[in-house]
Simulated scan of single mutants.
Amino acid sequence: MQIGDRVLISGVKPGVLRYLGNVHFAEGEWCGIELDEPEGKHNGEVEGKKYFQCSEDHRGIFAPSFKVV
């Protein structure tokens, strides 16, 4: 996967990969995704740390990389 790729979370939620790497809130490799629909939890910022930029209408979400294709 590369930044900018179209992806699916658990084969259901479509979006664009905006971040791939480690995060401060969990172990392992995580994907930061800008969802097509406003079904996320944030705008790319979690607990004051900005990982990526996306729409302010809650399109940002993180998922473990093993759940993203």
Results as ranks from 00 to 15, higher is better:
M1A: 14
M1G: 13
M1W: 03
Q2D: 11
Q2A: 07
Q2C: 01
I3Y: 04
G4C: 04
G4V: 00
D5I: 01
D5F: 02
R6W: 00
R6A: 12
R6C: 02
V7W: 00
L8K: 12
L8H: 02
L8E: 10
L8T: 08
I9D: 09
I9V: 12
I9F: 03
S10G: 11
S10V: 05
G11D: 11
V12I: 06
V12F: 03
V12Q: 10
K13A: 15
P14S: 12
P14E: 14
P14T: 03
P14R: 06
G15Q: 09
G15W: 03
G15R: 04
V16W: 00
V16F: 01
L17C: 07
L17A: 08
R18A: 14
Y19T: 09
L20A: 12
G21M: 08
G21R: 05
G21I: 06
N22F: 01
N22R: 14
V23T: 14
H24P: 06
H24K: 15
H24A: 15
F25M: 10
F25V: 13
F25I: 10
A26G: 05
A26S: 12
E27V: 04
E27A: 14
E27R: 09
E27G: 10
G28F: 00
G28M: 02
E29V: 15
W30C: 11
W30M: 11
C31G: 09
I33G: 04
I33A: 03
D36Q: 08
E37Y: 02
E37G: 04
P38L: 05
E39D: 13
E39C: 06
E39W: 06
G40M: 07
G40I: 07
G40D: 10
G40Y: 05
G40L: 07
G40F: 02
K41P: 01
K41Y: 08
H42I: 04
H42C: 12
H42Y: 05
N43M: 03
N43W: 00
G44L: 08
G44C: 07
G44Y: 01
E45G: 05
E45V: 05
E45K: 02
E45A: 09
V46S: 04
E47V: 04
G48A: 09
G48K: 07
G48P: 07
G48N: 08
G48C: 09
K49P: 02
Y51L: 12
Y51P: 11
F52Y: 15
Q53A: 10
Q53N: 14
Q53Y: 04
Q53F: 03
C54M: 04
C54K: 02
C54T: 13
C54W: 00
S55P: 03
S55E: 08
E56M: 06
E56F: 00
E56H: 06
E56D: 15
E56Y: 01
D57A: 11
D57L: 08
D57S: 08
H58V: 07
H58S: 15
H58D: 15
R59G: 08
G60P: 04
I61G: 06
I61E: 07
I61D: 10
I61T: 12
F62V: 07
F62L: 11
F62C: 11
A63F: 02
A63C: 14
A63Q: 11
A63R: 07
A63M: 07
P64H: 15
P64E: 14
S65F: 05
F66M: 14
F66L: 13
K67R: 15
V68M: 12
V68Q: 11
V69R: 13
V69N: 13
